[in-house]
């Protein structure tokens, strides 16, 4: 009897946890589908009466958020590509070639230490630099800053993936008369491609979600990123709830879809490879 009672209680606890964690997101989606009229009901509704995508088109086209979306994607892709190339150039020698342990651990620890710096402390001097060299409110400034600040993650993820590829596969190519570059291009790169893709997805999602740097280093819709635009919807004087919710949904949707593809690597990414999901 008590066994059944405890089982019931644990399932109840799990169900409550599930509702607490999922319901707020549900409410966001529902709000984004409501009509303006429905927003002003005395009691908010839990199901949209006449679901409509009007708030999405109003946001993206009438209010010009399509441009911000594009900016975010351009910044994200450029910064991700740059970070991956740089991280690979650093990880290849430290995992595949005989680098002294002290240098290796210096590089890795330096990268990890960047992860712990609060962005606000870093953005103040970057703001001064960017303003001085005339990159304020320019997309390249964001690309550079995002690249640097996603290097720790990129380096640690790629290091993890490269380490898992046995040295013998490349050595075999070398023994067969290939050059080291051929071994790299024809053997290592194909084997590492899944890992590189996963790292790319996760880094892109981080770039996409970044707020503070973009908030401070950009000023107009020409270079503003999507989250900065959404922030503007929330803090303006009279909030239009369904537009704001639509912004939230779009901001969430992109990383969410990407993460479903890279789900095995998310935890490894967030913990710098200390935890590996099977």
């Amino acid at each position: 009897m008590t066994r059944i009672a405890t089982r019931l209680l644990t399932w109840l606890a799990l169900a409550i946890a599930f509702v607490v964690f999922v319901f707020p997101l549900y409410y966001l989606v529902v709000t984004s589908l409501k009509t303006h009229a429905e927003l002003f009901q005395a009691v908010p509704t839990l199901f949209p009466r006449q679901p409509t995508l009007a708030s999405y088109s109003s946001l993206l086209f009438d209010q010009g958020f399509a441009q911000l979306l594009l900016n975010s994607i351009v910044v994200g892709i450029s910064a991700t590509a740059l970070a991956l190339v740089i991280a690979f150039a650093i990880c290849y020698p430290i995992t595949r070639l005989p680098v002294r342990p002290r240098m290796r651990s210096f590089v890795l620890n330096w990268a990890l230490s960047l992860r712990f710096l609060p962005p606000i402390a870093v953005v103040i001097p970057y703001f001064l630099i960017v303003r001085t060299i005339g990159l304020y409110n320019q997309i390249p400034a964001l690309v550079i800053v995002y690249t640097i600040f996603n290097l720790p993650l990129s380096i640690w993820m790629l290091k993890g993936f490269l380490e898992q590829i046995p040295a013998e596969v490349e050595e075999a190519a070398l023994v067969d008369g290939g050059t080291r570059f051929q071994a790299f291009r024809l053997v290592l790169l194909p084997l590492a491609s899944t890992g590189i893709l996963a790292a790319g997805i996760i880094v892109f999602a981080f770039d996409w979600a970044e707020f503070l740097f973009a908030f401070i280093l950009t000023a107009t819709p020409d270079s503003m990123t999507f989250p900065v635009g959404v922030q503007g919807l929330v803090t303006q004087f009279e909030i239009i709830w369904n537009d704001m919710a639509a912004g939230g949904v779009i901001a969430i949707l992109i990383p969410l879809v990407l993460m479903l593809f890279a789900r095995r690597y998310v935890i490894a990414g967030l913990t710098f490879g200390v935890i590996r999901e099977k």
Partner: peptide, 20 residues
């Protein structure tokens, strides 16, 4: 997967959710 959702969404969007 459900547990991963809150983690991967932008904090700005989380702010929006809790405003609501």
């Amino acid at each position: 997967v459900a547990a991963m959702i809150p983690i991967v969404i932008p904090q700005v969007a989380v702010g929006v959710v809790f405003r609501l």
